[in-house]
């Protein structure tokens, strides 16, 4: 009934507010709504890195916050901390650090990571209390709800929700078939297997 053709679309386009790796002219954009404390996002983290490595300049990657505050008590503060450090120019470094230390996300852990990236204690603790970062994370979250985020992580490929799994081959194939319609060469068959379909419920 619901194929990728009527899969939900991003309601908030990628823009200057976003954290982006890669150039806007890249043929494909992969956008993730993620939660720093979610183990599934943690599992997807190295896969996304590998996808980026393989596609190089062919891919733009965007990360938005979708902290599941009830399920993950540290997720919201971690997201805000990444935004604080991001405002100091080190978003991706903090993003990576958090995913590499998912089980240590207390406020003192966050401070330690921030300091490790050259953000001093006073800046970090002062900034972390400012509502601008709370608003920012909530704005990401709301945009995700509107766009059909249905779990974490949820990926969008060129603005359309990816309903398959986030295994490496599935992601690469989905990006490949989305990025280059008629770009020469046969496009790979679409993933039809339900293998690894994320969070199928029940």
């Amino acid at each position: 009934m619901m194929g990728d053709d009527d899969s939900p679309r991003l309601t908030l386009p990628v823009g200057p507010r976003d954290h982006v790796q890669g150039v806007a002219t890249a043929p494909a954009t992969l956008l993730e709504y993620g939660d720093y404390e979610c183990p599934y996002c943690g599992a997807a983290y190295p896969i996304v890195k590998e996808v980026q490595k393989r596609l190089g300049k062919g891919l733009r990657f965007v990360f938005r916050n979708f902290p599941l505050a009830n399920a993950h008590p540290h997720a919201t503060l971690a997201a805000e901390a990444a935004e604080v450090v991001g405002a100091q120019g080190k978003f991706w470094e903090m993003h990576d650090t958090l995913y590499e230390h998912q089980t240590a996300l207390t406020e003192s852990d966050l401070l330690r990571y921030a300091r490790g990236l050259g953000v001093d204690r006073e800046t970090f603790t002062t900034e972390l209390r400012r509502p601008v970062y709370v608003d920012r994370v909530q704005e990401d979250f709301s945009s995700g709800v509107r766009s059909g985020v249905n779990g974490t992580p949820t990926f969008y490929i060129n603005g359309i929700r990816h309903n398959g799994s986030y295994e490496l081959d599935v992601l690469l194939e989905a990006i490949g078939s989305s990025a280059a319609p008629g770009a020469g060469g046969p496009s790979p068959p679409r993933a039809t297997s339900s293998r690894g379909r994320k969070r199928s419920g029940v």
């Binding site: 009934m1 619901m2 939900p8 309601t11 709800v145 509107r146 059909g148 249905n150 949820t154 379909r197």
Partner: peptide, 15 residues
């Protein structure tokens, strides 16, 4: 809305 088997529908349609 009846969701496809195995796909969590999210909340965009509700909103």
């Amino acid at each position: 809305y009846l969701s496809a088997t195995g796909i969590n529908p999210g909340a965009n349609g509700i909103l």
